[in-house]
Nucleic acid binder design. Structure first.
Lengths: 199, 199
DNA sequence: GTCGTAAGTGGACGCTGTCCACATTAGCAC
DNA sequence: GTGCTAATGTGGACAGCGTCCACTTACGAC
């Protein structure tokens, strides 16, 4: 059922996850859904969790594909950039799932956070920890920039699929790179020069 | 009609703008709406334009309330911060309108951009031009950071009403300030020290 | 005064989420 | 094996939604 919902979400975002259509795909009658989810919103929440996991997986993947050692200045910088790149790539390639992952409207605090899986933000924190260990980022600076960094990447992903949607693909890619450069310049000059001109 | 829609949007975001309810508020029968808008989406687009104008107005207001001269380093820095603050305040105080302003799903390129009014992005650009004229920001740097700056503010506004919604108001305010500081640190150290610790 | 256009009306259609009562099935105690 | 219980699925209904069609009314140009 969640699987069927994911397909709908992938194709058309959260609004495309219509309960009756999900049950249709699964081959049961609409009311059967209420045996497993209290609500359409609850079903959507399950799908959202799945979409978030997919995003997190992509980020982990991106990080693991960086060959440079994680303790080196360059390796740490590249890792941060890879995390951001994966985030932006997911939003670009799976817009429906991305939207679904971040549409809250959550009057459902029931499915709160017993989430054992790693979240996208966890991966960002890991990358920043790397930078601290590599000596590129001052330890006390991390807590004040982690959320702004997330905001920059998330905001760019959102804007590109909102007001900036009419831009060409080429322009969009350029803006993605600018966002990553911008983060680099705020994290520290060394990390920036290390990570720039790579992707 | 747009006015009635704005009230619904203010109270419940774009999904609360249900065509039949709008016509109910206005005192006509649902079909009457189709004499003025081809579609629910067209009505929503009109409401969205209005919401965007309101946001732009708030930003202009915030900028105008900075007393320091716009040509001084401090004045220019404060102006940039004021623009960002207004953006975040609008998202915090008028979440319904903010969501409405930025939910696109626009298969309606009809109401494209004959918009004579100033957009939120226009105000950000004006603030950055100020920084260039005040000598704080290198002219060639502006085009590569304008969109990332927008993304940072927009992303923080979005995240605070999404995954970060459970945070306390105090924590949210702190993150808003962090986002503005982050932008300051990326624009240039001088602008940062000028703008920091002000609010 | 006739006519054309803009605005509103009335009724219907198919779709949605959700509720209720009922039927089927699986697992398990004895 | 029989009987009980819990889980799962079914059928029918309801109100609400966006939208389409044909019809009526108000009004300004000529």
């Amino acid at each position: 059922m969640v699987q069927a919902g994911l397909e709908l979400a992938r194709a058309g975002g959260p609004d495309a996850v219509v309960l009756r259509e999900v049950t249709r795909l699964v081959g049961v009658v609409p009311n059967a859904a209420y045996r497993h989810f209290s609500d359409r919103e609850a079903l959507l929440a399950a799908i959202r969790d799945e979409a978030l996991s997919m995003l997190a997986l992509r980020m982990a993947d991106g990080m693991n594909h960086v060959s440079a050692g994680s303790q080196t200045e360059q390796g740490a910088g590249l890792r941060l950039r890879a995390v951001g790149k994966a985030y932006l790539a997911f939003a670009r390639e799976e817009p429906g799932l991305f939207d679904t992952a971040f549409t809250s409207a959550h009057p459902h605090p029931s499915t709160d956070r017993p989430s054992d899986r790693q979240t996208p933000f966890d991966h960002l924190q890991a990358a920043l920890d790397n930078l601290v260990q590599a000596g590129v980022l001052a330890r006390e600076r991390k807590p004040v920039i982690e959320y702004p960094i997330w905001a920059t990447v998330h905001g760019m992903a959102t804007l590109l699929r909102g007001p900036l949607e009419p831009l060409t693909d080429r322009e969009k890619r350029k803006l993605e790179a600018q966002a990553l450069d911008f983060i680099g310049s705020a994290v520290g000059p060394e990390a920036e020069t290390a990570g720039a001109r790579v992707g």
